[in-house]
Design a protein around this nucleic acid. Structure first.
Lengths: 144, 144
DNA sequence: CTCGTTTATATTGTGCACTATTTATTATAA
DNA sequence: TTATAATAAATAGTGCACAATATAAACGAG
């Protein structure tokens, strides 16, 4: 029938759109909490990796975050300016830049610790639903 | 125990990160198909709404896409420059701008029709999994 | 009617996100 | 060993995304 020809081109019939929109929506719900500790969302996820794994190269950080130097270099310069991290050329390999945390950077972790907790109440899913969502998203993410 | 204190601050223990990363990943998988028809991802979802519902105001379009005039105005100016749409003040209400499709804009739908099909093979989920994902994402999205 | 308020876009400014290119350094193959 | 290739960051340029503000038009209470 004529009306069905374009059905799959409808916004509500594609998985990409709710993925795109809900990602933005969740980041938006973080905003007030992140403003309190002076970070943007991307800076926050970068700090999450650094709290666990610093010192780390820009490349190494990018592999965890799925981001390249084009995004990370300016972002890391801002974190450096804020006094949270240090950026230093690796003496062993001068191509590489090593990111390490300052005392202030490590200290910020204490303030950030309440954020995941607060966020859970902003996402209306049961533990089981969140688990299911998590697995489906990683199934998409891990497939090359 | 001491190591558990920061566990919830790990990237892999938060739902926001796979959401953010897989959204970008899926958009990336669209890229080649969209380049072929000369659209960016955001332009594509805007055209999807317009194919179904034009003529439509900027505000109306924004409500479907969860985007405001700050994002839409420059994007729509580009689509106008490409000859796909028209932007005209509504004579009934001069505050409002009505977006309508040109012949070229309507014609592009024929080229776009193969994209959802091609994309399905890029997302490694069964129909049932896609359905589940879809419902969970809209559950997040619809909650204010 | 008219002044204050609301509404619809547009504009400005900041911060990603990504592509393509450049630069510097290291690794490697002939 | 040396020319070539590969690698890691940085840079340049484009396009969102969103907050804040400005502008213009429409609405509404008195």
């Amino acid at each position: 029938m004529a009306t069905a020809r374009y059905d799959r081109l409808k916004l509500e019939n594609q998985i990409c759109f709710p993925l795109y929109a809900s990602s933005k929506e969740v980041i938006h719900r973080y905003k007030d909490y992140l403003t309190e500790i002076g970070l943007t969302y991307t800076q926050y996820i970068a700090m999450m990796v650094l709290w666990e794994r610093a010192p780390l190269s820009v490349k190494g950080l990018g592999e965890f975050l799925y981001l390249d130097s084009g995004t990370l270099t300016p972002l890391l310069k801002k974190l450096e300016k804020s006094g949270l991290i240090l950026r230093e050329r690796d003496p062993q390999d001068e191509r590489s830049v090593t990111i390490s945390l300052t005392e202030a950077g490590r200290g910020l972790r204490e303030k950030a610790i309440q954020i995941p907790e607060k966020m859970e109440s902003c996402i209306p899913l049961t533990n089981e639903e969140a688990q299911t969502l998590y697995k489906l998203l990683y199934k998409i993410l891990k497939t090359v």
